[in-house]
Amino acid sequence: MEKAEGDKSKEPARSRLQLLRIKGGEDFQPAMPPLDCGEHLVDLLWKWGPTMCTSMGDAPLTHQELSHCQINTGVELSGWEAETLVKLSREYFGESHRATKRDCKPPFIQAAAQYAQALRAENRQRIRAFLD
């Protein structure tokens, strides 16, 4: 995660999840957008992994990788399900890289509000520590 401009502290920058857990407790889980359907595809994405490791680092899942996952697990996906999993993997991969930027907005409105509250709480805590 990028540090704020001018931040010369040796302390590593906190992730969004770390900021949210400061405010909401260690067990805090951020809100996720509601799903009308397709929960089984999200479950498969997390079981098989949202990305795959390659010689050049992480990459989105490919149809070939999904084919091997289906053969190994006995799960049969329809064409649209496979295409949706590949798209989900690409979106996850892209967002995981965008999220390293300090000014990156959360991907949906409810999460943005939670993050803003956590950021304000951290800033209040820093000001109190400075004044004490």
Rank of each mutant, 00 (worst) to 15 (best):
K8W: 08
D36A: 12
I109R: 15
A113V: 15
A82Y: 02
M56L: 09
Y115F: 12
R126C: 07
A13L: 07
R102P: 07
Y92C: 05
P33L: 01
C53Q: 14
Q70V: 03
G6P: 01
P60T: 03
L119P: 02
L19Q: 12
P50C: 01
V42R: 10
R102L: 12
Y92F: 14
E11A: 11
A112S: 14
M52V: 12
W80T: 14
I71K: 13
P60Y: 09
I22P: 00
R124L: 14
A129Y: 00
P107S: 10
A111C: 10
S9C: 07
E91C: 14
E81H: 06
L19A: 01
L119H: 06
M1W: 06
K10P: 06
G38F: 05
G74R: 00
C37P: 11
L41K: 03
S9Q: 07
L45M: 04
R102K: 13
C69Q: 15
P50Q: 04
C104V: 13
C69F: 11
I71C: 08
I71L: 12
R14H: 13
G94Y: 10
R14E: 11
R124P: 07
T51F: 08
G38W: 00
R126A: 09
V75I: 08
F28E: 08
I109Q: 13
P106D: 09
F130D: 10
M32R: 15
P30E: 10
A13C: 04
G94C: 11
M52Q: 14
L17I: 13
V42D: 08
L77V: 05
C53K: 15
G24N: 05
N123R: 11
L41C: 03
S55G: 15
K87M: 15
L61I: 13
P106N: 00
L35I: 11
D43G: 04
P106G: 04
E2G: 01
Q29V: 15
G24D: 05
C104N: 13
P34I: 06
C104S: 12
S15N: 01
E65S: 15
G74L: 00
E122M: 07
K8V: 13
R128M: 05
T73K: 01
